[in-house]
Amino acid sequence: MSRIAETFTRLQAAGEKALIPFITAGDPDPGLTVSLMHGLVEGGADVIELGIPFSDPMADGPVIQRASERALLHKVGLRNVLDMVREFRRSNQQTPVVLMGYLNPVHVLGYEVFAQEAAAAGVDGVLTVDCPPEEAAELSAALIAAKLDPVFLIAPTTPMARVKQIAALARGYVYYVSLKGVTGAGNLDIDDVARKIAALREFIDVPIGVGFGIRDAETARAISTAADAVVVGSRLVQEIEAATPETAKEQLTRLVASLKDAIR
């Protein structure tokens, strides 16, 4: 069983929902990322989504765009991100790490090389937001061959026929995009999300995580009643942005703990 599947199985047995925090690797400084990842786990993170910085983050709102820009000031590349995961794994073998980003940095490395190096570094899953199932065959095959889970998005606009197609490819969990918009947007409709998740359950066997626009404990709690996992990104990145390098880990841990408490 993969580390992601084990995590969800354990949580389901305990009647708990998963908290999946997102941070961008290298933000605000590459030297800080591993420490922040440990801080997320201390706060109660069940899975970590680690963002691969990209120069043109088309699906992201301003907060995560700025995180990418800060990381790129330090020239953080995909191999640096893998190094960070490798270092994290030295003292944490339990918490799954899912890399999230855009296809081009992966494409330039080559899908097979990337998959093998990522698996060796201790990565568990990969979500490339601009690679829908139609274009994902080659990458997915490389990931699966390296025992990594390809994670796919499902959107409010995804028709059920596509949901079935995605269900056949998805491993680990699927990521339901809670709203029509970019990350960190403010137009989340909780009732609508709950209805959609219920409809998705008919076709989706893997756990369903929900993200985009979850900004506080109250929303996280409401979403967690319908979903298996709650993904929080922009809100955490904002916390990092507002903190100093000295206080970032502590502030992040505290915020993650409050979110985890809310969905327990």
């Binding site: 088309m58 699906a59 296809l103 937001v129 601009d130 690679c131 829908p132 139609e134 274009e135 796919f152 998005l153 499902i154 959107a155 409010p156 606009t157 995804t158 028709p159 596509r162 995605i166 995009v177 029509k180 918009g181």
Partner: peptide, 20 residues
């Protein structure tokens, strides 16, 4: 039919845009 010009082109967008 899927928008490929040999190895180029395609539809590399986030899921929300696929239906549109």
């Amino acid at each position: 039919a899927r928008g490929h010009f040999g190895p180029y082109g395609g539809v590399y967008v986030a899921e929300t845009l696929m239906a549109a």
